[in-house]
Design a binder for these strands. Structure first.
Lengths: 338, 338
DNA sequence: TATATTTGTTTAATCGATTAACCAAAAGTA
DNA sequence: TACTTTTGGTTAATCGATTAAACAAATATA
């Protein structure tokens, strides 16, 4: 058990030089002779030297840590975004700290505090469903730390954002359903206060109008989009005197809940009611019938969010124009809608 | 934009006292008067003081960070374990850094290096499928950092472990299948080198023998247990001249792959072949037919792993006896086996 | 030869919080 | 009164790495 870690001093002592020289040698400073560098690196290896990250971060004022906040990690979309983000950031010498809000505003605030406390160099986040109060995000900005939002963003918050074109996605879905002959299309959406869900709702309404289809209030529902919630909302739609012949659900999880209920009630999908989800979670292709959904290019989103962060820290730009990156989505047509 | 963070010095200047006094006041040192403490806390709040974690960690030699390594986060089991672990550790003042190995040995080694580099106070890990070489884990131990393994552990590594009784779980499954009238039970298992999979295989074999059922070599398959792998292996079993009437798969993901193939080939589950998975992932109850599986008490595992870590750091025990915690599992019977 | 430049390194300050050691003033005790 | 103890701080060192500034020796230039 080697109790103590090797420090610069230990190496310096062995070679009878200063710690400054050792530090510079390890960092390949031009002013250190090749001979010394070799010797230092040799000894460093022998003593199994590992730099003290805390000390270096303290001194340099940079922790080389990026905080990530996601609603949850056990969704394929988020875990996939994070994975791709991690790849890009690791390559640039950054490590990431993943935290989950579990869709809770309180937890999200805690996470932000924690990340600030850990002195992260930046925060990449996707907001919880509950979040309306943006003061904690303002706090990040006022701390001078780069903040990049993805997927779940906010219009009022003037920060960089990476996401897909939700408005256009709704259009694609409605076009597809219309092409399948649907005449009465319902939408189980998220809460309007969240930008992406608002855009999906707007897209739905505009597309419906464009095709001169009925857009009764009863066909548009705002919800929390959990699986359980999907179950509840579809029941409401089924209870209508004038049932829809298609339902576009703004989340795959809620769509799955809806599908469960439809199957329990022996309503044929897609024959009687067509169903479309959102997010292209893996299970959409696994259930019976498989669920038509929108693919969000998670890998791409992760990469772009990471790149945006890096663009802030790599070059020390003071005032950089805001990036709002909107990717095109893709409709994956499966059994539930054809 | 407040460029600079508030430091102890800033507070000290306002009150014309020493930074030492400020530090002690904030930490409720007994030698500081109530009056001073109040004043300090007041100013700290006004200036929005946030302690510099890096400095404090450097000085105290403790980062209050716990590193977590999981094969992947987008599995319900792992994300659930992590969530419960996080709750316990946060309460004790620790933050966690989540890293994923993606079942890759190389990535796992990198993760360990990263965590050591970040000076975590402990590491809680579940090993990648690929991992055979334990030298990196030895490295953690030789750095004097507590290491706790869960689920995917190793017998050779003499460290704390939290998991379920895999051997007994296999027995429960076989008992159940036998009770359902199965006479020829196959097992798609993991690689024997991994402790848990080895135990599941041993349990399978012993239970089969106990019931005087055939235990041909062709009925026992070792695999990587991915979804795709489940597809491949079930095909092998279906190609046998003497097909099994039940298949026990050591992972829900692989079981799902198997189920897909069975459905594609129009083989009725459970009528022609009964199927049992392992892990009780949420999708097991969502697919048709729903899949019988073993619940692993993920919340409990996370809590116990965290507690074990805390038992090391809270009290400064030098030599503590090793904890090997084995929980009972639960068989969740669903449509695929009845 | 005298001076300027380059090379290679050392010294010392610094990042911010903590803490061992020290000290002055107030309060208690003989 | 004289001495001890307690109270409430202050000083200064420290954690380990980095870096601006200083400096000696070697080399180049005039």
């Amino acid at each position: 058990m080697n109790k103590k870690r090797t420090t610069l001093k230990d190496i310096a002592n062995v070679l009878s030089i200063s710690t400054a020289a050792v530090s510079k040698a390890l960092n390949d400073d031009a002013r250190i002779s090749v001979k010394t560098k070799k010797a230092v690196k040799q000894v460093a290896k022998e003593l199994n030297y590992q730099p003290n990250h805390l000390a270096s971060a303290l001194r340099k004022g940079k922790s080389k840590l990026v905080g990530v906040i996601v609603p949850r990690t056990n969704s394929h979309f988020f875990s996939s975004v994070v994975e791709s983000m991690e790849g890009v950031l690791n390559k640039a010498g950054y490590n990431i700290i993943i935290t989950q809000s579990n869709e809770s505003f309180e937890k999200e605030c805690n996470n932000i505090d924690t990340l600030l406390y850990l002195q992260v160099d930046g925060i990449i986040a996707s907001m919880a469903n509950e979040t309306v109060d943006l003061s904690f995000y303002e706090k990040i900005k006022s701390n001078g730390i780069p903040l990049i939002l993805f997927d779940r963003g906010e219009n009022d918050l003037n920060v960089d954002y990476v996401g897909i074109n939700d408005y256009a996605s709704s259009h694609m879905i409605i076009e597809h359903l219309v092409a399948q002959g649907c005449k009465r299309i319902a939408h189980i959406g998220g809460y309007r206060r969240t930008r992406i869900f608002n855009n999906r709702i707007r897209g739905y309404i505009d597309a419906i109008k464009k095709h001169d289809l009925p857009h009764d209030d009863e066909l548009l529902i705002e919800s929390s989009l959990t699986l359980e919630d999907g179950r509840q909302q579809i029941k409401k739609l089924l209870a209508l005197k004038n049932r829809p012949d298609a339902v576009y659900v703004a989340s795959d999880y809620a769509a799955l809940g809806a599908l469960q209920v439809l199957k329990e009630k022996n309503i044929k999908v897609p024959e009687e009611i067509k169903l479309v989800g959102f997010g292209n979670e893996p299970f959409t292709s696994l259930v019976t019938p498989s669920i038509t959904s929108i693919s969000q290019h998670s890998k791409q989103i992760g990469k772009l969010a990471a790149d945006t962060f890096l663009s802030y820290v790599e070059k020390d730009v003071v005032e950089q124009s805001l990036n709002k990156i909107i990717l095109d989505s893709e409709l994956i047509i499966r059994d539930s809608s054809k």
